[in-house]
Write a protein that binds this DNA or RNA. Structure first.
Lengths: 305, 305
DNA sequence: TGAAACGATAAGTAAATACTTATGGTTATA
DNA sequence: TATAACCATAAGTATTTACTTATCGTTTCA
């Protein structure tokens, strides 16, 4: 179809007003200008769109069909234009975030606040493991990723926005509970429930103990923090998890944080995205929001045990 | 929106193929040609549609929106083009016919046959009185009109396509039933059930008797042929109607046609349309069909009584 | 590390587009 | 019947469009 949008718009006006002259006025054109557009359109389509009987013009059947079509097309484009207009601002948009599973304990709260402020923004949150996060970054199908340990391989931009203290947890009735300044030495007498190799927490932990030249006994490996906490509660051993995951358990006194020397291991949470990625206004706004306000919103439990 | 269809189509190809170069190949363009169209489009919209990360390109959210829109627009136009293509031929289309109420006894049969031959054609039949037909012609909202007596006032083209004999009817037990060569003189002794003034049949009748210098006694006026036939059957008087309306009654011997001298009054059925009206292919086909084949399809009852 | 793939940019151009004014021919209308 | 309203046509033109080829810079991958 060799038709131009201009032709369709002129045609729509003529069809609506049933007059070349008035359409010309509406469009700030001369009457012959309109005549020519219509003629051109008719010749492009190879079919008559108007019928003139005396002074009045009528749409032919083909004209009626095209009239409907041009209204639909016009509306579609108007609508899209509106959407794009919104997208330029923060008003509307989709925010696609992926977070490490550990971040699941606070990320939803951040998103909830952001989402409440920007009602027309659709938020999409994927909670996944480290591997999943990396593939998100590679496929570029998230606006950004929240994780504790940005991978080195990819070219990324990572900004820390919050502390992420790793602490040693034990059941409340554990021999070490309540003890002050437990040494790392002492810890080596205990057995530990660990995250799976490759997990951010696990990597950080191993790095820490390697530095301290200590070696821990691994009782079992669990692939989620939830599982570790359950196992520790059940007395199967000690655990090391992010303090952020403990809010409830500390409050309910199901678990205690041990006061071990050099602890907590201080890590950070990072907002990560591919280098050079152009953020949408919504993504930009979310990032600013996290960098500036996450501290206020997420007050994690005090370290006092 | 200052967007051109060309831009949308190029954009659609790039969005679909996720590559400027391959889109260029598909469209038989150079790669810079595509680049420029997209750039133009983006600047028209004031928003980025693609994001390039390394070698790969991705649609931005705005790009996704526009992609959907351009597919819708494209489909709409394709569909319309198909419809218009059909309309050029006889395959599809709408046929709007208005017929005089008397023609209601045969017009549906014509339309049924035509409609069976052209399945994708929507047929619209309005059965109305003379006044209604004239307003159809004035408003140009029918393709053509079938009537017995084209009005003089409007500039019309009328073509006769079939005889329309007006006959005198009586109940089977009437004194004149079966009589040969009844004189018009004799008719004046009877009373008649007439159509309302202004009806085509009434006008033709009055013209006929004025010519013969005869005057009929009007018992009552009815606004439909059906009512006249009922009244005649009930013995309220004689009637004059188009032979076409009698098929059933003659066969069931509810009514008889009298053998009156100079009868039947020979009139014709006309296909009528406004002078200069351009017929759609479907309308053209219907007109030809009626002119050529109506005789074959409509064999009305013989005059023998 | 070097070649290949990809998109961006620059410069140039033939063609078309989208108008304009002027004018002519019909058709209603007062 | 004159006039006003309406659309068609003709001729002319500035601008824009839609390309092209040539070239460059970056990224990926063998």
């Amino acid at each position: 179809m060799n038709v131009t949008l201009r032709q369709l718009r002129v045609f729509e006006a003529v069809g609506r007003l049933k007059s070349y002259t008035r359409a010309a006025e509406e469009l700030y054109l001369s009457q012959p200008g309109v005549s020519m557009q219509i003629k051109q359109l008719e010749s492009n389509l190879g079919i008559a769109l108007f019928e003139q009987l005396g002074k009045k013009i009528f749409l032919t059947e083909a004209g009626h069909e095209l009239y409907q079509a041009s209204r639909i097309v016009d509306n579609q484009l108007d609508e899209t234009e509106q959407i794009l207009e919104d997208l330029k601002g923060v008003r509307r948009g989709r925010l696609m975030i992926a977070v490490a599973s550990t971040a699941n304990y606070f990320a939803p709260r951040l998103l909830a606040v952001f989402s409440a402020r920007h009602e027309a923004v659709t938020v999409n949150l994927d909670v996944t493991n480290r591997e999943g996060l990396i593939s998100h970054l590679e496929a570029n199908d998230s606006d950004m990723v929240i994780m504790g340990l940005p991978p080195q391989k990819l070219e990324l931009e990572a900004e820390a926005f919050m502390e992420n203290p790793l602490v040693v947890i034990a059941p409340p009735d554990h021999a070490l509970a309540g003890k002050k300044a437990i040494t790392i030495q002492r810890l080596q007498e205990e057995t530990f429930i660990m995250r799976e190799p490759g997990s951010g927490t696990r990597i950080a932990m191993e790095r820490f103990f390697a530095e301290k030249r200590a070696q821990l006994t691994t009782a079992m490996e669990m692939s989620s923090n939830e599982a570790i906490k359950q196992a520790v509660q059940a007395g199967l051993g000690l655990g090391i998890v992010s303090l952020h995951t403990l809010e409830l358990e500390l409050e309910m006194q199901r678990l205690v944080v041990l006061d071990v020397e050099s602890f907590p291991i201080l890590r950070h949470w990072y907002i990560v995205q591919r280098k050079g990625k152009r953020l949408s206004p919504v993504a930009r706004a979310f990032k600013d929001f996290v960098l500036e306000e996450s501290g206020k919103i997420l007050q994690y439990p005090l370290l006092r045990t």
